[in-house]
């Protein structure tokens, strides 16, 4: 299926064809991410995790669906809200939770923490804490792919709050000008920390920013993981085949605060409840049942996820603390 190059504005509700085989693994990933985030929140409230902790609960379909459209050698560049993207790209809950706990066995040896997940093995280029500052990095990885002709595509995730900063604007300008194989995914979760869109953006449609750079765009709801996969796959294919970048806006919602310290007083309970009715996990599960998945199978899957996260928490708890930092300043 080919979308027209300019598919902005189109928040269509056309159902995406689904099979249990395709949906079930994506549901499992989303569920694991949610359980991992819940375990992180619990450990945070117990004082076992420090610093900033930005949970992705509510937005799981975006990172899971988008990453499902990639090859393993494709690159992903993410923000400080990176746990879901890392899990979807193949990193283990053990390595991530151990990182949050500041342990030696952590993904980045206890040196990065929640906001700075990286994995060379999984072509995961971070985990970046400066809003928009990673957009040029993603363009740079795409530049390298085009330079070498290696056929890889880079996915770059950011929020709608990043669409006002210079790094975003310059990254887009150069990706558009040089036709770099990157898919820029705006996870529009409606709030830039505590500021709603109408107070931070003059337009409702973030994907319109693509027009200034001669770039393809797309825009759709992010509660259907299969739709995310299908639509991102179109942009990925465009990047791989023609080097053309795409700006994709996926409309979503985070159920929790911006970070653990945010009680979310800037939005109403009713609004949050309304979005929770569109929970991508609930939607995927109902669809699986509709497609004929056996409840027993789903329960088994859910128990398996529960065990995976419990094991990861145990691993994080029992791992030795981080103990070296000097070797990672300058590469000899």
């Amino acid at each position: 299926m080919r979308m027209p190059k300019d598919a902005g504005d189109a928040l269509d509700d056309e159902p995406v064809p689904a099979t249990i085989e395709e949906l079930q693994p994506l549901y499992r990933q989303m569920l694991a991410i949610r359980r991992m985030e819940e375990a992180s929140a619990k450990a945070y409230s117990q004082g076992k995790i420090g610093g900033f902790l930005h949970l992705i609960i509510g937005q799981e379909a975006v990172c899971v669906g988008a990453t499902a459209a990639l090859r393993p050698d494709d690159y992903v560049v993410a923000t400080y809200r990176d746990h879901g993207h890392a899990y979807a790209k193949g990193m283990t809950a053990r390595s991530m939770l151990a990182e949050l706990y500041g342990k030696k066995t952590g993904l980045v040896k206890g040196l990065g923490g929640s906001m700075h997940f990286f994995s060379r093995e999984h072509n995961f280029l971070g985990g970046h804490g400066i809003v928009g500052g990673h957009v040029p990095i993603a363009a740079g990885a795409a530049f390298a792919s085009k330079y070498r002709g290696d056929g890889r595509v880079t996915l770059c995730f950011f929020g709608e709050g990043a669409s006002t900063i210079g790094g975003f604007a310059e990254g887009l300008a150069l990706a558009g000008l040089w036709k770099l194989p990157v898919v820029l995914i705006c996870e529009n979760n409606q709030y830039s920390m505590g500021t709603p869109m109408y107070r931070s953006l003059a337009v409702e449609d973030v994907s319109m920013r693509a027009l200034a750079h001669g770039m393809a765009r797309d825009r759709f709801d992010g509660d259907d993981v299969l739709k995310v996969k299908q639509r991102i796959a179109i942009a990925v294919e465009r990047a791989r085949e023609t080097n053309e970048p795409t700006l994709v806006e996926v409309v979503t919602y985070r159920f929790r605060g911006h970070s653990m310290s945010d009680p979310g007083l800037y939005r109403t309970k009713e609004e949050v409840e309304e979005w929770k009715r569109r929970d991508p996990l609930g939607r995927a599960r109902s669809l699986l049942v509709e497609l004929g998945a056996a409840e027993a199978d789903l329960h088994a899957l859910e128990d398996d996820v529960k065990a995976e996260i419990a094991d990861a928490v145990g691993f994080a708890e029992s791992s030795p603390v981080a103990d070296e930092y000097l070797p990672y300043v300058i590469k000899e």
Binding site: L125, G133, H134, P136, A138, A141, S145
Partner: peptide, 21 residues
């Protein structure tokens, strides 16, 4: 040759360097 976008092309350099250029 780049347009006038120091943050953009400096960052492109960083990203390209991360993957081996």
């Amino acid at each position: 040759d780049t347009p006038i976008a120091e943050m953009g092309f400096a960052g492109i350099g960083v990203g390209a360097a991360m993957v081996g250029l």
